[in-house]
Nucleic acid binder design. Structure first.
Length: 666
DNA sequence: CTGTCGTTTATTTTT
DNA sequence: TAAACGACAG
C-alpha cells in the first residue's frame, strides 16, 4: 500500500487520497502532474474501487498511452490482491471514448453503428463539394473559413437546426452548414467535432443512456483540464453529475489552445460548477533551476486572468538566463548553432537541446545553419504519416469497402490508379440515387456494356466486389489485396517516374505502405480488435507515426538529435537546454495577438510554457531585423524579455562575431 | 491527365 | 519571398 505514496510530496498525497467528491488540482509545470494522476488511479484501485468504474480522459493518444503504462507499472509494483488482472480502467482521449460510446449509441441519432470518421482532409473536401453545389465562389470565400466556423459551432453544441444567422455571411454559413451536415448523414460519417457534440446530445436527450454511463464510470479523471472546450466540458459535467467524483487536473497558466476553442474559464470556474470542490495546488517544481522558475513566474504574473499560485523549487539557482541580440534571423540561427556545438562538447548530448519558436517559418534559417555546422536535428510537426497520399489512397479504398456511402473517399479513389473514369461518370454515380456507390458503379456498367468506359466501370465494379468479400479476412491481407488488384504499386512507380514528383520517390512510398501493413498486422493480432471499422476510426484519431512507433525510438544514442519545434508542440516536454528564438514584438507576442488583451495573455502563457521547458540552461534570442515575406522588418525585443527579473539575466556581447553571413559566403 | 501560369496568402493545431 | 492552390490549355 505504502508504495503508492513513497515518491509523492504531501500535496500530491492529498490529491491522490481524496476519493469522493470533486477535486481540482492546479499543477504547475514540472510539478509531477502525470505522477499525481497515475498514482491516484492506482490508489483508487488499491482502495477497492473496481477498475471498471474508473474513466481517465486525456487529449492526446500519447498522454493516454503514457498514463496506461505508468498505471500498469504501479499496479505491478503494488501487486494487488484485487481483480486488476481481469479489469482495467478506461483510459483514452475525448475522441476515442466518445467514439466507443457512439459505436453503441449512434443509432439513437439515426446513424449506423458502422459510421465512418472523417478526418480534417475529408471534412475540407466535403465542404468544397458543398460549396460547389451551392455555387458559392471558393475564391471569394476560403473553404477553410467555413470549416473553422462550423467546427466552432459544433464545439458550442450548435447544430444547423438551432443556428440563428443574423447577416449575409452567417446566412451563407447556415446554408453551407446544413448541407454539409446533410451530406455527412448521407455518407454515414461523423467529423471529429461530431464525436463529442453528438455524444453530448445523446446524453442530453436520452436520460436513461446518460444514467447508464454515469453508472459505468463512477470516477472520472480529466487531464489538461485547462484545454477543454465547451463540448468537452459539457460531456464531463454530464458524466459526473450523478456521483460528482470528478477529478480535474491542469494548469490555467498553460492554456494555449484558445484558437482551438479551449476555454480557460472551464478551469477558472470549476469551483462554481462544483461548490464542494477541494482545490489542491502542486507548486513544487522538480524540473528547473531557481532562475528559470523566477523568470517564468515573473512573466506570468503580468496576466490578470489566472489562479494565483507561487511555484518554488529545491533545485539550485543555476546559471543566468542568456539573452542574445542578433543582427538578423541568420545571425540568430548561426548563434544558436554555434552555441549548441560549443555545449555539445561539454557533456551534453544533442537530444538535450531544444530550439523553440513561435512560427514554423522560423525553422528554415535555423535549419540552414544546422546543416552548415553538421548538427543532427529533427523538426517536429512536419508531414504527418496518415496525411501521405499513398496511405490516404489505400485507406480510402478500405473506407469505401466498409462504408459504400462514403462519397468523399469514393471520389478519392474512383480513378486512382487511372482507369479512364472522369468527373462526369463520378457525378453520374453520385446522382444515381443509389446509396451504395459500389452498386451504383455496377448499375451504371450494366447500362452500357459496350463502350470503353462501360467496360472500365465493369472492371472497377468487379474489383470492388472482390475486395469487399475479403473485408473480414484480416486488415493486412485486405491492404495487400487492394495494392495487388488495383495495380497500385505500378501506379506509384508511374508517379515517381514523372519528373515533377521529385521528392515523393517510389521506394519511400512503398516503405510507408509497409509501415501501414505493420500497423494493420498489429491490429489483426489484437484479439477482438473490433474489425476494420475500428481500425479506420482509430487511425483517423491518430496523427503521427511517432504515436505508433513509441518504443522503437532509439535510446542508444546512435541518432541523438536536436529538436526544433513550435512552442505549442513543446508543451509537456522538458530539455536540459532550451533556446527560444525570435523573442521579438510582432513575432512573439505575435502581431495578430497584441491588440486583444485576452489573446495577449495567451501569448504570455505561451511564453510561460516555453520558458518552463528548460531544466538547466535557457537562452533567449531576438533579431534586430528579420526578413519576413520578402521584406525586412525591424522589431523591438519582446516585452516578455522585459518581464524577466534583471538579476537572473546575462546579456551576450553583440556585434563582434555576428557576421555569420560573411562566414558562409566568403 | 499533366504541366504551366497566375493568384493568393503566410500563427499556433492534442483529435 | 515562396509555396500552395486553382484555372486552363494542350
Amino acid at each position: 500500500m505504502s508504495d503508492i505514496f513513497k515518491n509523492l510530496n504531501p500535496k500530491q498525497v492529498e490529491a491522490v487520497k481524496i476519493i469522493n467528491g470533486p477535486v481540482l488540482v492546479i499543477s504547475g509545470p514540472g510539478s509531477g502532474k502525470t505522477r499525481c494522476l497515475t498514482h491516484r488511479v492506482a490508489y483508487l484501485i488499491s482502495s477497492g474501487i473496481d477498475p471498471n468504474d474508473i474513466l481517465a480522459v486525456t487529449f492526446t493518444n500519447k498522454a493516454a498511452d503514457e498514463i496506461k503504462e505508468r498505471i500498469q507499472q504501479l499496479l505491478k509494483i503494488e501487486n494487488y490482491k484485487l481483480k486488476i488482472q481481469s479489469a482495467s480502467p478506461t483510459i483514452g482521449t475525448f475522441h476515442s471514448i466518445c467514439l466507443r460510446i457512439l459505436r453503441r449509441e449512434a443509432p439513437l441519432l439515426g446513424y449506423k453503428s458502422s459510421f465512418t470518421v472523417f478526418d480534417e482532409d475529408d471534412r475540407l473536401s466535403l465542404i468544397k463539394k458543398v460549396m460547389a453545389r451551392l455555387e458559392v465562389d471558393a475564391k471569394r470565400y476560403n473553404p477553410q473559413i467555413f470549416v473553422r466556423r462550423i467546427s466552432k459551432l459544433k464545439t458550442e453544441l450548435i447544430y444547423p437546426e438551432n443556428y440563428k444567422p443574423n447577416d449575409f455571411f452567417t446566412r451563407l454559413l447556415a446554408k453551407i452548414y446544413a448541407a454539409y451536415q446533410q451530406d455527412l448523414r448521407t455518407a454515414n460519417a461523423l467529423d471529429f467535432d461530431d464525436l463529442i457534440a453528438l455524444t453530448v446530445r445523446i446524453f442530453k436527450n436520452h436520460p436513461e443512456v446518460l444514467d447508464h454511463y454515469q453508472d459505468r464510470w463512477k470516477y472520472v479523471l480529466i487531464d489538461e483540464y485547462q484545454d477543454t472546450s465547451f463540448d468537452q466540458y459539457s460531456l464531463t459535467k454530464l458524466l459526473s453529475q450523478k456521483y460528482k467524483n470528478i477529478f480535474a487536473i491542469g494548469d490555467d497558466a498553460q492554456s494555449i489552445y484558445a484558437f482551438r476553442e479551449a476555454d480557460i474559464r472551464n478551469i477558472l470556474n470549476f469551483q462554481k460548477d462544483y461548490p464542494e470542490t477541494k482545490v489542491i495546488f502542486l507548486e513544487q517544481n522538480y524540473r528547473s533551476t531557481k532562475n528559470i522558475l523566477a523568470a517564468a513566474q515573473n512573466i506570468i504574473s503580468n496576466n490578470q486572468n489566472q489562479v494565483p499560485k507561487t511555484l518554488w523549487t529545491d533545485n539550485e539557482k543555476g546559471e543566468e538566463i542568456f539573452i542574445k541580440e542578433a543582427l538578423n534571423e541568420r545571425a540568430e540561427a548561426g548563434f544558436i548553432a554555434e552555441k549548441i556545438s560549443e555545449f555539445a562538447g561539454r557533456g551534453y548530448d544533442f537530444n538535450d537541446f531544444a530550439v523553440l519558436y513561435r512560427t514554423h517559418a522560423q525553422s528554415r534559417a535555423i535549419e540552414e545553419f544546422f546543416i552548415i555546422h553538421s548538427l543532427p536535428y529533427q523538426i517536429v510537426g512536419g508531414i504527418k504519416f496518415y496525411e501521405r497520399k499513398e496511405i490516404k489512397d489505400i485507406l480510402a479504398y478500405i473506407k469505401v469497402l466498409v462504408n459504400p456511402s462514403d462519397m468523399v473517399s469514393f471520389e478519392r479513389i474512383y480513378n486512382i490508379p487511372a482507369r479512364g473514369l472522369g468527373k462526369t461518370v463520378f457525378e453520374k454515380i453520385l446522382n444515381s440515387g443509389e446509396k451504395d456507390l459500389i452498386e451504383a458503379v455496377g448499375t451504371l456498367a450494366d447500362k452500357d456494356e459496350k463502350s470503353k468506359q462501360g467496360q472500365s466501370l465493369r472492371k472497377f465494379y468487379k474489383t470492388l466486389r472482390g475486395l469487399k468479400k475479403q473485408i473480414n479476412a484480416g486488415i493486412a491481407s485486405l491492404i495487400q489485396n487492394i495494392i495487388k488488384t488495383t495495380g497500385y504499386e505500378e501506379y506509384l512507380k508511374g508517379l515517381s517516374a514523372s519528373k515533377n514528383d521529385a521528392y515523393a520517390n517510389f521506394e519511400e512510398r512503398m516503405e510507408n505502405l509497409k509501415e501501414l501493413l505493420t500497423v494493420a498486422k498489429k491490429y489483426d493480432n489484437i484479439e477482438g480488435g473490433g474489425g476494420v471499422e475500428n481500425f479506420l476510426a482509430e487511425i483517423a484519431l491518430m496523427q503521427n507515426t511517432d504515436t505508433l512507433k513509441t518504443g522503437v525510438k532509439s535510446q542508444n544514442g546512435a541518432n541523438k538529435k536536436v529538436t526544433l519545434m513550435t512552442i505549442h508542440s513543446s508543451k509537456g516536454l522538458e530539455f536540459p537546454v532550451v533556446f527560444i528564438a525570435g523573442m521579438e514584438e510582432g513575432l512573439f507576442p505575435h502581431s495578430r495577438s497584441v491588440l486583444d488583451p485576452q489573446e495577449l495573455e495567451e501569448e504570455r502563457r505561451l511564453c510561460y510554457v516555453a520558458v518552463t521547458r528548460a531544466k538547466e540552461k535557457l537562452i533567449l534570442s531576438y533579431a534586430q531585423r528579420r526578413n519576413i515575406f520578402g521584406s525586412t522588418q525591424m522589431n523591438l525585443p519582446s516585452r516578455f524579455i522585459g518581464e524577466i527579473p534583471q538579476n537572473t539575466i546575462k546579456y551576450a556581447a553583440t556585434g563582434i562575431d555576428d557576421d555569420y553571413e560573411e562566414k558562409i559566403y566568403y
